[in-house]
Amino acid sequence: MTAKILSLNVNGRDETILCDGLTTLQEVLRDQLGLLTSVKDGCTQGGCGSCSVLVDGELWLSCLAPVAALAGRAVMTLEGLKQSAGIAAIQQSFIDNSAAQCGFCTPGMILTVKALLDANPEPSHDEILEALSGNLCRCTGYLPIVEAVKDAAARLSGGADAARASEGREG
């Protein structure tokens, strides 16, 4: 059994990581790279979406990704998205719509919404349901989350709303 050293760009920084066989991206992010614990571990089988990350801008489930195959690729977690376009509006929409209770699914939800709105700035109700279909939430019943997505889409498409969102974020 040989451990491998490889280079991975995480949250904008090139990182050197050590991996064994089928070490997952989730394990590396949570345990090797300064505890990026916005990446949760809800099921370790791709069923809950709480470990969602962006790989080269695409939404991935980090618990199913062998990190050995990701050399040279760029991974973003919620920690690295602080300055990213639109993220503040999405976060504020989640706050304003009370779209989280226990919070365990929330980072994965926010990354999923970010990926959705990047690809489709004005999603329909059905498109939102479909986009969220891989992220489980046991507390909210999803309705406030769907409202938050609609709210975020509106804020990001309207200048005044967007400004209010960023003020709310500071306050």
């Binding site: 949760k40 706050i95 365990f104 929330t106 926010i110």
Partner: peptide, 20 residues
């Protein structure tokens, strides 16, 4: 408002599994 919403949306809420 739930007091910890801001932590939740920033991914800063720490659960038992996040402790090392």
């Amino acid at each position: 408002k739930l007091r910890d919403l801001k932590k939740h949306v920033g991914g800063q809420t720490s659960y038992c599994d996040d402790l090392r």
